Computed example of a mutant assay.
Amino acid sequence: MKFTAKRVVVSAAVAGVAVAAVGATVIATAADPVSPEVTGSTPADAGHENEGKYTAGDYVLTVHELDDDGEGTSTAIGPHTTYYSKTLHGNGNRQHTVVKFSAGPDADGPIVFSYPVPAPGRALGCVASGTEAAPQVRCETELPAR
């Protein structure tokens, strides 16, 4: 194969586009990572299997239970409040795959933490702490109640 200046320029351009596309995918993924699932030994509260238990800290915590298309439900939880969600695993034809959290009263605020929805039969326990300016959310997949 004979290498000409034109062929080298075209090859470099194609390679550059491929690198840019991969880089954009990595940046988009890094901007909204989903934390790895953490399974605890704590059983879910009796009567709340298959539910999400969300406890807000000193600020309003908005919980977004979403499917792969980003569709789902959002619920704002007042400060120092615990909320049990019966729609953790979805409702009807919609199957939720991720739970995302934002801090403050703006439901469209930036996502501060994401966690995968556990398998059916398991519950999810999440606790928010920190401040609205520096929120922290910790989640743990809980075993079925005994």
Rank of each mutant, 00 (worst) to 15 (best):
G16S: 14
Y115F: 15
T62C: 07
V38Y: 10
P43I: 08
R122G: 05
E132N: 11
K53T: 10
D106K: 09
A21T: 07
A145L: 12
Y59P: 05
P43K: 02
A145F: 10
V117P: 00
V10C: 04
G23D: 01
H48L: 13
S74M: 13
T25A: 10
V117K: 01
L124F: 08
V98F: 09
R138Y: 11
H96S: 14
T97Q: 11
A30M: 12
S11K: 08
A119F: 09
L88K: 00
Y83W: 14
V26S: 03
T82P: 07
R146L: 15
A107C: 01
S102T: 15
R122F: 14
K6W: 04
E37I: 15
F101V: 00
Y84S: 04
S114K: 09
Y83A: 08
H80I: 12
P33G: 06
D68P: 02
A56M: 06
V60N: 06
R146T: 15
D67Q: 10
A76P: 01
A123I: 02
H80R: 13
G23Q: 03
K100V: 01
L66N: 06
T55V: 11
V112E: 02
H89A: 12
P105I: 04
G52V: 05
I77N: 01
D69W: 11
V26I: 10
E71G: 07
K6E: 10
V14I: 15
E37N: 03
D68M: 12
K2R: 14
A5P: 02
G16M: 12
V137N: 00
S129D: 15
V34R: 08
V117Q: 00
S114Y: 04
A119C: 13
R122C: 11
A133Q: 15
L61V: 09
S35R: 14
L61P: 03
R122I: 04
K53A: 07
G104V: 05
A12W: 08
L88H: 02
S129T: 14
S35V: 01
S74Y: 07
P135Y: 02
